[in-house]
């Protein structure tokens, strides 16, 4: 992609076109491996070429919504959903409401409707269990979830930096992976590969997943990582990535450090990768669960997401919270003195 200097007018009209194109594109229904006719381009090492910029942005939620009990929407239903959300997202927020205390996503191109995304007719990303929902949590998982909730009820979110969410602290995004779930925006991945390694760079927060293909053994158990440690191999034309050594500190829906993830990447067309993952976590669920997210080709670059370095927001918020407390203390002190 060439960066020529665009004036603001060009950018507006360009993006408006982009929005219409994105919402109108129909790709393979997730789950159907591409037609057998597709000849996947290969790297110099002879492997299917997964390289490029990809997005897994979607409107489809991980779990099937409560009042839906079919596995697929119709095309019309999804079109209505996408159009409705686009209208919703580009509308102005109401002054004096919490959503209004925010920069406008639309202006910065950060609405989901402004993003590239694959059309997905599934009613949930989860394909197994077949009801499209997470398995029931086991006793261990529930106990852990309770402990987390109890801790949160005691600690104020603005008491300290550490009391905040991981993404507010610019440590890691929920869903950075594995498994790699879609972010609200900038839900992009850069894939680089050669004979011995595949690298997946997650845009936020510049996380490089380095996947060796040399069949090396699993890492020592004691080396826990936020994104685990991956081992990959080619199964025919599908890249299979097994990740272990996940430290459990960035849980997916209550997962633990016992979680292991198996991901499968299959390029099914020039602009689509079928991404399928299975989560195993005996400390949380008594069975595994599997989801599919179509990945669609998008454009680069992925500009450096130096989150921690630019995290003035967290600093300002803590300053503001302490200031508010001080003012409250002073006000109540004055009131006591008056009596």
């Amino acid at each position: 992609m060439v960066h020529r200097q665009l004036n603001l007018r060009e950018i507006v009209s360009g993006m408006l076109v982009g929005v219409f194109l994105a919402s109108g594109v129909v790709t393979e229904i997730s789950g159907q491996a591409g037609s057998g006719d597709y000849e996947v381009p290969r790297t110099a090492a002879g492997h299917p070429n997964l390289q490029g910029f990809w997005t897994n942005q979607t409107y489809i939620s991980l779990e099937r919504p409560e009042n839906v009990d079919k596995a697929f929407y119709t095309e019309e239903e999804v079109s209505a959903l996408e159009e409705g959300r686009a209208v919703n997202e580009s509308a102005q927020t109401t002054p004096g409401t919490i959503p209004d205390v925010h920069y406008d996503f639309t202006q910065f191109g950060l609405d989901r409707s402004q993003a590239t995304f694959a059309r997905n007719l599934r009613t949930s990303l989860i394909v197994d269990p077949s009801n499209g929902r997470l398995p029931r949590m086991n006793a261990e998982g529930l106990a852990r979830a309770e402990a987390v909730a109890e801790h949160r009820s005691r600690v104020g979110r603005w008491d300290s930096a550490q009391a905040n969410q991981l993404d507010d602290r610019c440590m890691i995004m929920r869903g950075a992976g594995p498994p790699m779930l879609n972010a609200g925006y900038n839900s992009n991945y850069q894939i680089i590969q050669n004979r011995d390694y595949v690298m997946i760079l997650v845009e936020m927060i510049h996380d490089a997943r380095i996947i060796p293909l040399d069949g090396r053994s699993a890492p020592p158990e004691r080396v826990g990582q936020w994104m685990g440690l991956a081992r990959g191999h080619w199964d025919g034309d599908t890249l299979v990535v097994n990740t272990t050594n996940i430290n459990g500190q960035n849980p997916i829906n209550g997962s633990s450090q016992s979680m292991t993830v198996t991901e499968r990447f299959t390029r099914v067309s020039d602009d689509a990768i079928d991404y399928r993952f299975t989560v195993d976590d005996p400390a949380t669920w008594d069975r595994s669960w599997t989801a599919e997210m179509p990945m669609k080709k998008t454009i680069g670059p992925m500009f450096e997401h130096a989150c921690h370095e630019g995290n003035y927001g967290l600093y300002n918020t803590l300053v503001g919270a302490r200031l508010e407390e001080r003012l409250e203390r002073e006000t109540s002190l004055r009131e006591r003195q008056r009596r």
Partner: peptide, 25 residues
């Protein structure tokens, strides 16, 4: 080393007290 691997050095959590400690409640 045959097991040479780039490990995580996610140092943000190692410096939060340093940067934000004085703003703790």
């Amino acid at each position: 080393e045959t097991n040479a691997e780039i490990l995580e050095f996610r140092c943000v959590e190692f410096v939060e007290d340093l940067i934000y400690g004085q703003l703790q409640k």
